[in-house]
Design a protein around this nucleic acid. Structure first.
Lengths: 335, 335
DNA sequence: GTGAAAGCGCTAACAT
DNA sequence: ATGTTAGCGCTTTCAC
C-alpha cells in the first residue's frame, strides 16, 4: 500500500480512500491510484482490515452434514446469497452431535467471523437460553428452536405438509401414510409437518389413523426404507405417502418397487425439500419446494443487518418463506 | 488480553505464551492465566494474530458446484481433513465458468487464506502457466491440469476404469458401452478413463467398437440419460455400461428401466465415484470408490507443508490415491 | 481534496 | 521464567 501510494505520488490515505470508494477524490487522482494498484498487483490485506474495522467479511454456516443433499443445496444457496453481499462463507459441520453444535457456537473459530447462520439439528427449544450467551450476531435456520433470542428464517412447514397431503387426497387417495413422524414432538419439522397432515385429513373428512403414522430412525433414505418395510409387514393397507423429506421418500420408493408396487398407481408418494435428485428418479418425485433461495437470501440479509447494528435492540424477527408444490410423476397417474 | 494479564497479575507476553503453548512457564503461573482466561471468557482475536503472523488458519476450497454430490462429498472429506489440522475451510463455487475460476484464483478473497485447494473443471493443461502467477500455496485436485507448477492429488483414473471394465467382462459382458467420453480428449478424467476402458477390452481380446463409445453433454444425470437414449435409438446392441461417473450411471439406469430393460440381467452397469446415493438406488449401483478421504487428507497435508515452506524449492509432487471396486446389485445377477 | 499520525490486538525480539 | 517494546497493514480522526 505504501508502494502504491509512492508510485501514484499520493499519500497512503488517498489509496485507502480510493479502495473504499470514498467521495471527494479527483477522478484524475483516483485513476492514477488505480493504475498503480494494477501495475503492482496490489490487493489489500484482509487481516489488517479486519483487525482495524472489527469485521472480516466472513460468516460461518453451521450445518449437520454436507453429504446430506438438503444441506448441500442449502449451503449452495447461502453461498450464492452471501456472495452477492461480498461475504465469504466458512462451513462447519456439526455432524448432528450435540457437543459439537455447542462447541461450534461458542468456539474460538467464531472470533474470525462476523456472524453465524446456524441450522440446528440437535439443540432444541430447551436450549434456547444457551443462544443468549453467544455474543456474535446469529440467524437461526430450520425448526429446532423457536422463540429464541435471535432472528429465525424458515419455511411454512405446517402449510406445506397440508398442501402435500391435500394433493394426494385430490388424487383420490384416502389411506395416506405420514412418513417421518417423531411421536411427541410438537415443534420441529416433524411435529409441524404432522400437524399439517392432520389438518388436511380433517378438512377432507378423513379419519386420522395412527397406524399410518410412521416413525423412522433418521430422516435418511435408510429411515424411509425401514419405515415402509415395517408398514408393509404390518399389513395395514395404504395408497399414498407423505414423506417429511425427499430422502425418506426415495428410500420408501425403493422398498415399494422391490415389493412390486407401482408408483403412483398403487401408491402415490410426495416428498419435502425438492432436492435435485427428485427430478431424475424413476418415477420423478413430487415434492414441496421450501423456497430455499428465498430462505438463504433473507437469512443473509437479516444477518447483515444484525452485524451492522449489533445492539439495535430490535426484537427477534421470524420470516416464513413461500413454498411451492411441485407435481411430478410419483403422484400423477398417466393418462 | 490486557485484562487477562491484569487479572492474572502477569504481563501480556506471558498470556501470549500460555495461549501458544510455549515452554518455560511455571505451571502455577500458567494455571493462573488459564483461570483468568476462563473467568473473562477471553478468546484471541484471529484477525490480529493473522496480521502479525501472516497466517489465518483458513484455506479455501474451489469447486464447481456443491449441488453436485461428488463435490459435496469431496468438500465434506476436505473439511474433515482440515479440521484435524485445526484449519477452517472457505468454500468457493466456480460454477464451472472459466472467468470465475480465474478470478477466484487471483481474487482478492485469497488475501485472507493461507492456501488454496483447487478442483479445476474448466481450466486445462493449456492454462497451467496461469497457475505460476498465483503467489499463494496451492494444491490441485482432479485431472484437468497435469504437469503444472503445483502439487497435484488425484486418483488412478486409467486403472480404475480398467478395473470397472474388467469387472463387467468377468460378468460375461462383451458389448460394453463407455458412457461419458469426450472425443479427442486425452488428459482429463474422460480421456484417462476411456484409456482404461480400451486397455481392459484389449487385454480380454474384445474389439474396440466406436459405436459403443458414448459422448454426453455433461457429466450429469441428464447427460447419462440422453446418451443411453441415443444409444437405444441407434439400435446398436449392448449388454454392459461403464459410466465415467455415478450421476451419468443413474441417469442411464433410469432410461434403461423406462425402456423395459432389466439391470443387471439385460444390461450390467457400473459407475465411478461411489457417491452416497449409489447405495440406495434400485438396483444399487456398482462403482469405483476413488479414495476420497485419502485424497482429501493428502491434499491438506501437502498444502500445509507448502504453507510452512513457501519457498522450499521442492518440485511439484503428484499423489495417486488407491481406488476400490465396489460391487453392488447393478452388476451382479442374483442367484 | 489530501496528508500525518494514532492505534486496532497480537507476536517476536530482546532485555531482564 | 517473565516483562518491555516495536510493528504487522490497514482505517480513521483530525489537520491542512
Amino acid at each position: 500500500m505504501h508502494e502504491v501510494a509512492a508510485l501514484a505520488g499520493v499519500s497512503i490515505k488517498t489509496v485507502s480512500n480510493v479502495i473504499n470508494d470514498y467521495s471527494h477524490i479527483r477522478p484524475e487522482t483516483r485513476q492514477r491510484v488505480l493504475d498503480a494498484i494494477a501495475k503492482l498487483g496490489y490487493s489489500p490485506n484482509l487481516s489488517a482490515r479486519g483487525l482495524r474495522s472489527g469485521k472480516t467479511g466472513v460468516i460461518s454456516l453451521i450445518i449437520p452434514d454436507l453429504r446430506n443433499p438438503y444441506f448441500a443445496e442449502l449451503a449452495d444457496a447461502v453461498m450464492r446469497a452471501a456472495e452477492k453481499q461480498k461475504l465469504s462463507v466458512i462451513i462447519e459441520q456439526s455432524g448432528a452431535e450435540r457437543d459439537r453444535e455447542l462447541s461450534l457456537l461458542s468456539g474460538a473459530r467464531n472470533r474470525m467471523v462476523d456472524g453465524i447462520l446456524y441450522s440446528a439439528l440437535v439443540l432444541g427449544e430447551e436450549d434456547a437460553h444457551l443462544l443468549e450467551a453467544i455474543e456474535i450476531p446469529m440467524v437461526l435456520l430450520g425448526e429446532r428452536i423457536f422463540h429464541g433470542p435471535t432472528d429465525h428464517v424458515t419455511m411454512r412447514n405446517t402449510e406445506g405438509a397440508r398442501a402435500a397431503t391435500e394433493h394426494l387426497i385430490a388424487a383420490g387417495r384416502t389411506r395416506i401414510v405420514a412418513l417421518g413422524a417423531h411421536r411427541g414432538e410438537v415443534i420441529g419439522s416433524a411435529g409441524l409437518r404432522l400437524e399439517g397432515y392432520r389438518q388436511a385429513l380433517e378438512a377432507a373428512g378423513i379419519d386420522y389413523n395412527d397406524a399410518l403414522v410412521c416413525e423412522v430412525g433418521g430422516w435418511f433414505r435408510s429411515g424411509g426404507a425401514e419405515g415402509v418395510r415395517a408398514l408393509l409387514a404390518s399389513g395395514e393397507p395404504f395408497d399414498g405417502i407423505v414423506a417429511f423429506n425427499d430422502s425418506m421418500a426415495l428410500g420408501a420408493m425403493r422398498v415399494l418397487q422391490e415389493a412390486g408396487l407401482r408408483i403412483p398407481d398403487d401408491v402415490a408418494i410426495i416428498g419435502f425439500d425438492d432436492i435435485d435428485e427428485t427430478r431424475y428418479t424413476l418415477p420423478t418425485l413430487s415434492t414441496i419446494n421450501p423456497g430455499r433461495d428465498e430462505i438463504a437470501e433473507i437469512a443473509v440479509q437479516y444477518l447483515i443487518e444484525r452485524i451492522a447494528q449489533p445492539e439495535s435492540g430490535m426484537p427477534p424477527r421470524e420470516y416464513l418463506s413461500r413454498f411451492e408444490l411441485v407435481e411430478r410423476e410419483s403422484t400423477v397417474v398417466a393418462g
